[in-house]
């Protein structure tokens, strides 16, 4: 059956002589991979519509449970060409795309994730701190996907604590971590990250504040690094990166 939706190109993978497998994030079907016939040929009707981050109206053909439907049309809505004209911006946008591919499952509709990515790509077109935008995107996407770390006190006893335990994805206070570490929870190597109270507060603000107001927050470089290492450790435990 023919399905129509909107989609943002996250990644393309060359196949055969001139074909591509294109990964899209769509509002109605979540992450999908589609087979595009000959887009690399000079006179392809796809033109530049399959370049990374292009936002298009797409149509694809295939059974409902098809793993690789065939892309029949892609009409550009927003090309996001400026994201591809500067190496630093492109690298930042690529980080957002990779994070999305890593976190979301294929074929699960997620309108919020789609609109978040579209909003973040638009933010990157404006002069803004790219690393801040990427951290903000990661925090919001974790929240939408249901993978947010639990930072509101110790997950075991409820007491205040600032030690983040990656196997639990939550704060575990010092007295509880002693037991957890010796028991070797879930058979994993205990990984305890010490967070500052400021980092926990910043995380919650970035997760919950209104998108328009969130740019009023001006975190220090040290705080951003702390937040990035928390996100890195949390996601690496959830979805280890394929190398």
């Amino acid at each position: 059956m023919l399905r129509r939706t909107e989609g943002i190109v996250l990644k393309t993978f060359p196949l055969g002589e001139a074909d591509l497998i294109v990964s899209f994030l769509t509002p109605d079907h979540g992450l999908i991979s589609a087979f595009a016939k000959s887009p690399r040929k000079t006179k392809s009707r796809f033109g530049s519509s399959l370049e990374p981050f292009t936002y298009s109206n797409i149509s694809f053909w295939g059974k409902e449970d098809s793993k690789l439907p065939r892309l029949t049309q892609a009409d550009i809505i927003e090309p996001f060409q400026e994201l591809r004209e500067d190496i630093a911006t492109f690298t930042a946008a690529s980080e957002a795309a990779l994070f999305t591919l890593r976190l979301l499952a294929e074929g699960e509709a997620n309108k919020k994730a789609f609109y978040l990515l579209r909003g973040v790509l638009r933010m990157m077109l404006r002069p803004s701190d790219r690393s801040f935008v990427i951290v903000l995107y990661k925090i919001r996407l974790l929240d939408i996907a249901g993978y947010s770390p639990s930072l509101k006190g110790c997950a075991r006893c409820g007491k205040t604590g600032y030690g983040f335990y990656t196997p639990d994805g939550s704060i575990i206070c010092d007295s509880c971590i002693g037991g957890a570490a010796t028991r070797g929870l879930r058979g994993a190597t205990p990984h305890h990250i010490r967070l500052s109270p400021g980092c926990v507060k910043l995380y919650e603000s970035l997760r919950t504040w209104d998108m328009e107001k969130v740019f009023r927050i001006k975190p220090s470089l040290g705080m951003m690094k702390e937040l990035q290492s928390l996100l890195g450790a949390h996601v690496e435990y959830l979805h280890p990166e394929k190398r």
Partner: peptide
Amino acid sequence: EFADEVTLK
């Protein structure tokens, strides 16, 4: 007529 806006630009 069949060119996309990025190519045409």
